[in-house]
Structures are given as C-alpha cells and as structure tokens.
Design a protein around this nucleic acid. Structure first.
Lengths: 231, 231
DNA sequence: TATTTAAGTGTTAAAATTACACTTTAGTTT
DNA sequence: AAACTAAAGTGTAATTTTAACACTTAAATA
C-alpha cells in the first residue's frame, strides 16, 4: 500500500533521447521515422517509458542502447517536459536526455531495425509532439556546454586531428573560426596528447593526430582550471 | 483506456521548490521543518505531487504559491531526480524547480503555517532524501545564470541601490567585488533606469535608486547583446 | 562647525582576444 | 624529375577587456 497518494495521481513517465553525431562536416541527429502510433509516419526522437524499478538515467541509457547499441557514452539530462497536452495520446511526462556519440560506433543493424536516420541539425524535419522543442533546447545546451566543457571530444574518434576538432566547433556554432587562434587556444590548455601519427585521409601532407587526455583535464580542474574555447 | 502502457508503469511524480531570497546581506533558502512523515522533524524543500490534469510547471507554481502566496515570480526547472530509491517511502520521481523571490513579498502567515524558515545558503541543515543535491545544483545553476542573465533583479526590490546590487552579487558568489569596476560594468550595459530618489536606510548620504528596465534589455538582446557581470 | 560613514568616481597596467598571410609537406600531374 | 596542388602548420601586432587601485562628496549627527 502507498504511503502517499491515490492511484489516479500516478502518471506515465517517458524518456526521449536527442542523439548527436558528427560526420566531419555536419552535426547530425539520429531520428526515427515512426512506424507506430501515435504519430505514425512522422519523425521523432527515440524514446521509451520509464519503468518503476529503474532510475530515469537508466531508462535513458536503455533507450539509447536500444537504438544504437552504445553504452557508457556521454548522456545528460536535458529537461522534463510536462505540459498536460504535450502528447495527444494521453498525459505523459517526458524527460529528455541528450547524448554525444562517435558516429562510427553505433550499431547499424539496430538503427535500421528502428527505422532511424541521421539528419543534419540544419535540416530537421517536422517532429511529433514537442520533440522539436527538445531538439532546439538540446542544441542550445550543447552550444553552451561545448565552449566551457571538454565534451566535443565525445563526438570525435579517439584520435583526431586539429582541423577535425576545429571543424566540429564550426559545425556546432555555425561559424568559421581562425585556425591559428583556435589551435593556439586548444594547445595552450594542454589537454591533448599529440601523437606521432598522421591522418592522411583529407590531405596529401597529412595532419597530426591528437588524443584528449581526461587525466590531465581532471588534474587541471582540481587546480581551478576552466576549459574554454572562443567561438 | 490507455493507448500506451499498463498501470504498473505509472509513477508518482512530485515537484520540489528551491526558493531563494536575499535580505541585503545573505542569500537564503526557504526550508520546511517537516511535521509529516516521511522525514518528520527533518528539514526539506517545499514540495507536492504533480496532478494528472496539471502541467509540471503549473504544479511548481502551485507549490510555490502554497508556501509563499506568490505567483508570477521567477521559476525555472532545475532537474528531474529519478533514482529508484531516492525516496525511502516509495518510488517517486521529483522534478526540482528553483525560484527567485523578493524577500519582502512573501506571505508570512503561510510560511508560519507551513513551518518554513529562511536559512542562509552558507548554513543549510541536513535535508531529507536528495534535497541537498537539489540545493547544491540550484546554487550552481544560480551562479552560472546570474552572471550571464539579468535574473539577480528578481531577488531585489523593484527599486534598489548600486551597493545593494553589488552586495547581492557578492552574496551569490561569496566574493568581494570592486565597487568601481562593478558599477562601471553595470552602468555600461545601460539596462537600469537611474531614479531621482535616494535610499537613505544605509547611509547618511543616501544612495541613488535604480530600476531594471526589461524593455531596454529585450531591445538590446534583439540586437545581439549578451548580459554579463564579472565576478 | 567638526566628525563620521557610506556613496560615488577615473586612470593605468596587464591579460585576453582578434585580425591577419606566408611557408611547409607530400602526393599528383606533366 | 620538375612543377603543381591542396591542406596543414605557424607568429606577431593591434585592440579590447579586465583588474587593480585611493581619494572626494554628501549629509546626518555630535
């Protein structure tokens, strides 16, 4: 028996995931073309109901894994959407999360099964319910976060080049950056290990590969360091 | 009948409010000394259950009004807390909100009825459940927001002096600020109307009163202006 | 009228940000 | 093998922003 409140106050709780990827040119979202009601045929975020015996964050992890096969990736709560009529089916409160994944890593079969597709953030189709609001808020959040926390690396492969990193920031902020200033700033923070390898996929000369060093970052943070990229 | 999911997936949803006030010296929170179970005798945030026919934000507004009598004040969603065992009574997901109120305005009788008290943020007692987490996150959020959005004014009377405003920022960031630099920066943003009145309550000379001008702010924002205070 | 107390005000030095263009590398073409 | 191409890599100077700092003013009170 409940300590609290009658059955009629109990509500359906869902989680929805805004999933970001970066293909070296554009920032993209993984969206579902729904083949179930409500909103059949429309685009939506991947979502699912939150279970009684599972934390909200765990529910988001489960939903993310269901679609991408990925675990232990960047996943952060965005906002709880609780307007009475947000879902035309019935009252559902949805907690949105956003995730940053390495676009090479996801499970192609699962994505196909779920009828999901990568869509550039600059060209998001109409979405069901209030999912467009979620997407807009997620983009604002990413833009706020990415300049003050080293989360951009979550969208890049383990090893990446300076031009790749710059192009990621340019994609996030839709703004051209000066490569000298950008590189200077990034290098000066001393968070990256420069490798002896080059990536030659995008130029004859090749570009040196770098790797984000989380230990260095933690070390610096404990000394009062604040990550910051000028955009 | 439900389109969706069985009854056993329905959950209790609550809202909790972190309520800030500023008494010209300290930043304070309005906390409840609970006289009901669970956690009877302990301190907690003011909260309540979210109803089926009421949006989350409306639930937070209702709870805030229940305790303070106030409506149409600054109220923003903080975070949804959804760990399975966060409430020892039973599974309850709680969406925390934080509010900034003018400390003169609240309804003293309601506060007394609810057994609530103002406590300085520098001296928060032990709190029930995960309310301490909520409080900590709220303070971080306030600190992040107050330097980039003109929300400090929500904690001050309609008319306030420059020293009052400075003292508010000093209370939020627990840091002494240089009054010349502070004043210069605030004035330079051109968001305040300087009145011909002085407040003499804290000095013989008296200090000029100012008023935040939201229209000016909106006007500037539409031209690409970003509020910012150095702390 | 002398004293007290908080309000009010400007300048200079340091640091951070922005603007800007040529050289290097190595594969490809002639 | 020499010339060409295309992206990577690199430094300096000007500007803007931030930080540091101390005396004068106003008005009530003694």
């Amino acid at each position: 028996m409940s300590l609290y409140s009658p059955l009629e106050d109990r509500q359906l709780l869902a989680v929805d995931c805004v999933i970001y990827g970066f293909d070296n040119h554009e920032l993209k979202l993984l969206l579902i073309k729904r083949n179930m009601e409500p909103g059949k045929g429309m685009w939506s975020l991947m979502g699912g109901f939150s279970k009684q015996n599972e934390g909200l964050y765990q529910a988001a992890e489960r939903v993310l894994k269901q679609l991408t096969g990925l675990q232990n990736v960047y996943l952060e709560q965005l906002f709880a959407y609780g307007d009475v009529d947000r879902d035309p089916g019935e009252r559902v409160v949805s907690v949105a999360y956003y995730s940053l994944i390495k676009i090479e890593d996801y499970d192609k079969d699962l994505v196909k099964e779920n009828n999901a597709h990568w869509r550039p953030v600059s060209d998001i189709p109409d979405l069901v319910f209030d999912h467009r609001e979620m997407v807009d808020k997620a983009l604002k959040r990413l833009r706020r976060r990415a300049r003050i926390q080293p989360i951009g690396f979550e969208l890049l492969p383990e090893k990446f080049t300076m031009p790749q990193l710059q192009s990621l920031y340019e994609a996030i902020y839709q703004k051209d950056l000066d490569k000298r200033n950008f590189c200077k700033k990034i290098i000066s923070m001393d968070l990256l290990d420069k490798l002896d390898e080059k990536d030659k996929s995008s130029s004859k000369k090749g570009a040196f590969l770098y790797r984000f060093n989380p230990e260095k970052y933690q070390e610096l943070v404990s000394k009062g360091f604040y990550f910051s990229v000028d955009v």
